[in-house]
Computed example of a mutant assay.
Amino acid sequence: MEGQNFISILQLCDHYNVEVSFFKQLEEEGLVEITTVKQTQCLHQNSISDVEKMIRIHQELKVNIEGIDVVFNLLQKMKSLQNEMNSLQNRLRLYENDF
C-alpha cells in the first residue's frame, strides 16, 4: 500500500467543507472504505469521484446517508442494465446483418 494513492480524510473535510462524521457514516453504510495509512485515516484516490457525487447529493439535494445509499444502488443498477442493453443490441445487430 503506497501513501501516494490515498488522500487524508481531514484534507477532504477541509476541501469539501464536510465533517469527519460524514465519512464515518458513509463507511458504516458500506459506501466508502476508509484505510489507515501512517496513522491517518484516508480514502483511496479512485473513490474520490464517487465521494464528490455523494457530497453533492448530500449538500445540494439535502439527501441523508441512507438516501445516498439508495441513489448509488439505483445508479449501479441503471449502469448494469445499460451495459446489458448495449450487449443485447450488439447481438441483435449481428443477427440483422446475417439477413
Results as ranks from 00 to 15, higher is better:
S8G: 12
H44D: 09
Q59E: 06
Q4L: 04
V37D: 01
Y16I: 07
E27G: 02
F23N: 11
N46L: 08
N97L: 12
L74N: 00
S47M: 05
H58C: 08
G30F: 02
K38Y: 07
Y16R: 09
V18I: 10
Q89G: 01
V71H: 04
Q59D: 14
F99C: 09
S80R: 09
K53C: 07
M85E: 00
I55D: 01
Q89T: 13
E19S: 15
N5L: 11
K77T: 06
F22T: 14
I7P: 06
D98C: 13
H15N: 13
L61I: 08
E29K: 11
L12W: 07
G67T: 05
N46M: 11
I9Q: 00
K53V: 01
K79V: 02
E33W: 09
E96C: 06
K24S: 07
N97Q: 12
Y95D: 04
Q45L: 14
G3S: 14
K38S: 12
I7N: 04
Q11D: 15
K62T: 13
Q76R: 12
F72D: 00
Q39A: 15
H44K: 06
G30K: 08
N97T: 10
G30M: 06
I68R: 01
T36M: 11
Q82S: 10
Q76E: 06
L61C: 10
N97C: 01
D14G: 15
N90S: 11
